[in-house]
């Protein structure tokens, strides 16, 4: 007999699985899912919360308060409005994509929808990182132009012929902090999503490869 036919015969003959009772099934449907979709949902919500908290937290720091005393509303209010509008937009996209995920779709479509949801959050994070960098540059420019304390420091340094040193120091320090923060965040995302989506990505690649 052909090996595969033998296998099929055995497969069909061996149907002695541990029987799960009505009550056991009933109690199972009351339990919570631990699927990756649920984890992506939770982590995504945490990301939205994280960036909102960061924004609020930064607002309350000493430096920010001093910064707000400067007349910068013309720049900062549009930036803030833009930030919130984009947050709402991403939130809408995220929920729309999340709602589309259905275990009754075929495997490929299901995987695509999960990856789309994840991509929305990825874009949101990328947006936040860019927003962070742009904000820091804007704030730095304003500080150099309007912050009297800093201007007097610069003047003093200029008198000693060390203006360049001061500028370079501030810019390098800011850059280092930015790189460190972004690096840690990216490493975190890479780890979390890497672990969570490793299998999905592998299987999606395999299916995509099959369709070429």
């Amino acid at each position: 007999m052909d090996e595969l036919e033998l296998l099929k015969k055995d497969w069909k003959a061996n149907e002695e699985y541990p029987k799960v009772s009505y009550d056991e099934i009933y109690s199972m449907i009351l339990k919570r899912s631990s699927s990756i979709v649920k984890w992506i949902f939770i982590i995504s919500l945490l990301e939205f919360i994280f960036w909102s908290v960061i924004a609020v937290f930064l607002k309350d720091t000493e430096n920010m308060k001093r910064f707000e005393e400067l007349d910068t509303n013309a720049i900062m209010i549009p930036l803030a409005v833009l930030g919130y509008a984009i947050l709402v937009y991403f939130f809408y996209l995220f929920f729309r994509n999340y709602k589309r995920i259905s275990a009754t779709d075929n495997a490929k479509v299901l995987m695509e929808n999960i990856l789309k949801t994840r991509k929305t959050v990825k874009h949101y994070v990328a947006f936040n990182l860019i927003y962070l960098v742009v904000s820091v540059i804007v704030v730095l420019c304003i500080e150099f132009k309007m912050d009297q304390q800093l201007i007097s420091q610069v003047n003093q340094a200029a008198a000693n012929g060390e203006a360049f040193k001061l500028y370079a120091g501030i810019i390098i320090a800011t850059l280092l902090i930015l790189v460190a923060v972004i690096g840690v965040l990216l490493l975190f995302y890479w780890l979390v999503y890497g672990i969570l989506l490793k299998r999905l990505n592998k299987n999606y690649k395999e299916l995509k490869h099959l369709n070429i």
Binding site: S35, I36, A103, D105, N106, L110, N203
Partner: peptide
């Protein structure tokens, strides 16, 4: 038929091994 689809989707995609 419907069960095969959902069950396989769970095994391939949704389940965290």
């Amino acid at each position: 038929t419907w069960m095969y689809r959902v069950a396989l989707n769970t095994a391939i995609t949704l389940y965290r091994k």
